[in-house]
Amino acid sequence: MASPVEQFKLKPLLPLEVGGLDLSYTTSALWMTITVIGVTAFLTLSMRGGRLVPGRWQSMAEMSYEFIAGMVRETVGNEGRQYFPLVLTLFLFILFGNLMGMIPYAYTFTSQIIVTFAMAFTIFVGVTILGLVKHGTHFFTLFFPSGTPIALAPVLIPIEVISYFVRPVSLSVRLFANMMAGHTMMKVFGGFVVALGIFGVAPMVLIVALTGFEIMVAVLQAYVFAMLTCMYLNDAINLH
């Protein structure tokens, strides 16, 4: 029986090597492409009519838009407006990547730590630069909020600094671990279904439940990622 983590192996579809680096178009890249097409189709085809009274697809596109717009407005405020397309793209990219990964035989690129880490790290660096540019050295008050007794500084500042620099790790590991764990779990129970023969009905039922749970996790993790991005943006723009 193949290992349950076998599914995360990448298959190169179009070999490509540039300057000694392997940049092959793999299954992960294929599903990123499908996600890009899927998100674009979802947002544009549904709005093609632009009807005053929206249909089902148009409603969903508008709801995604307003959901993220509301999130940005509430966490970042008015200054967050210009980052709205970025947060919307992030949310939909992760959401569609997670959800499409639930299709049998599909590849879930968000189960790759390097993908989630690249996104989280970029956000972290971008947000830090934004904060430094906007507030200069004043940005470092983020590590020591005003109104805190000075005696707490030796304790508080290291904690704040560590928690700040751990952000890209926690942000990326959260998404990666959730996706990997879910898919591994499904694979393990799928193996039980085959191994147990007729008694495989029991793990089968469990898999049905797990699938529902996984879809919820897929949506939730996309939401959490977008929400945390908004909070980091807020920290950088408004300093708490």
């Binding site: 680096l21 178009y25 992960s28 890009v36 947002l43 919307l88």
Partner: peptide, 21 residues
């Protein structure tokens, strides 16, 4: 696998960002 994934992630994300925005 990292270079390839990062490379395609950057392309996919930038393309999607432009399409969305």
């Amino acid at each position: 696998t990292y270079p390839s994934q990062i490379f395609w992630l950057i392309i996919a994300f930038i393309v999607l960002y432009f399409l969305v925005s």
